[in-house]
Amino acid sequence: MSSFSILQALNSAPLYLICGGIIAFVAVICVIFLIRAYRAGIAMGMDKGKMKTVITSSATFSILPSVGILLGVIALSGSLGIPWPWLRLSVIGALHYETQVAQAAAEQVGLSSLSAAEMTPQAFTTIALLMSICIMWGMVLSVFLNKGYLKKISGSKKGEAKETATFKPNDLDNKKGGFADKAMTAMFIGLVGAYVASYIGGFVSGGAQNGGGIFRFRGDWVPLVVVAASALSMAFFIWLSEKKKLAWVDNFSIAGSMIVGMAAAVVVSL
């Protein structure tokens, strides 16, 4: 199947129907929870104005990050079509997670990269299944443990302490807190390091079909340009956010940096 026809299949009406149906179902769940919470708030004597403020502020707060997520759909659409990334990023997923898992699954089915040029229907369904399985554990834990865990937390009055334990990439120097957050950050450093190192190794010793070999520098250098461009772009976003106090740019930092990196790939491949 050519890359054009696989993308046609991945963008076909039945796939839109399946993915759109699940998204619509999740939207209905949100509406049910929203109405129940609003009614419960009124019944418990909460101020209607306060609740309306929460709804308005949450809606406005979410517009910019949602546009950032949409850029992620565009980024993944070239290899996985539009409906599946639309589903994954509307429900449950996040761009950085989806891309990593999709790449790992692509490797397992024998693709050298996550691209439509190599994609097959079976590769796609395998990638889609792995994406679903890898991040379902928050939901699984919710089903089995949410009630008991919340009961235990409220009983032991430790809720306030837990609330401060948010996960941040650069908190390794924070002396407070346990090792769990640090271990997670370290794990992500290892994960990112593995891929960056593979691009370096691929350039230095890869490209066997072009007469490459160990230290022959005949491998593909485009991924390195892409890594550099997106890293520089991320540095710029962080500079804007931290030095220029433009916190809203954080919403676009990952997706925006990816678009810059991908644009660099187009430019150097012309």
């Binding site: 890359s3 980024a75 993944l76 659409s77 070239g78 290899s79 761009l95 950085h96 891309t99 990593q100 999709a102 790449q103 990269s113 996550l114 691209s115 439509a116 040029a117 990439p169 950050t185 992500f188 450093i189 990112v192 390091g193 891929y195 960056v196 691009y199 485009v222 991924p223 390195l224 892409v226 890594v227 550099a228 461009a229 997106s230 890293a231 520089l232 772009s233 991320m234 540095a235 962080i238 930092s253 990952i254 940096s257 990816m258 678009i259 810059v260 990196g261 991908m262 644009a263 790939a265 187009v266 150097v268 491949s269």
Partner: peptide
């Protein structure tokens, strides 16, 4: 197509700086 073929490298470039 080169853009979509390098979507993973683009992600890890951004994340590498962040982490």
């Amino acid at each position: 197509q080169p853009a979509f073929a390098n979507v993973v490298a683009a992600l890890f470039g951004a994340m590498a700086y962040k982490y």
